[in-house]
């Protein structure tokens, strides 16, 4: 075993470099569908919040753009934030690094929309620089 001391930086690796010969398991997220962009980012975020956090009985449109998502507002917590990131990654084709998980981005749907737009722009820039 090669021992490490702290400060080691692993090589940057692509997220998926091998095709999975899998089965009935959940499939990788589809890239964002262009036809869906007519739906606002805000309403897509609300849909992701309800679906992926299993908020049964809550309709997406009941969530206000400025409503606090955590604490007193919708009552979400840190694990919800992590689960929500997975949902947003799948919905918007973005990849959020652990050190980019800015707490303030999760204040409301509006702040999340800003965060997602930033991430999408970054992903777009990364794709452009690759080609």
């Amino acid at each position: 075993m090669k021992l490490r001391t702290a400060r080691h930086k692993p090589d940057p690796r692509s997220m998926r470099t091998r095709t999975d010969d899998a089965h009935a398991a959940p499939q990788p997220p589809l890239p964002p569908d262009e036809t869906m962009t007519s739906e606002s980012i805000q309403s897509r975020i609300k849909r992701v919040i309800v679906d992926c956090l299993m908020l049964e009985g809550l309709a997406p449109e009941e969530i206000g753009d400025e409503q606090a998502l955590f604490g007193e507002g919708l009552g979400l917590d840190s694990v919800d934030a992590l689960e929500l990131v997975l949902g947003l990654e799948a919905e918007f084709g973005i990849k959020v690094k652990s050190d980019e998980m800015d707490r303030t981005a999760f204040n409301s749907v509006t702040s999340l929309a800003g965060f997602v737009e930033g991430q999408m722009a970054k992903a777009e820039a990364a794709r452009a620089s690759e080609t």
Partner: peptide, 19 residues
């Protein structure tokens, strides 16, 4: 010295971390 290094038991290629 910490005994923490690259994982060899399984491939960590698709994982977020590798040690």
């Amino acid at each position: 010295q910490a005994a923490i290094g690259d994982v060899e038991l399984f491939s960590t290629e698709l994982h977020r971390t590798h040690i």
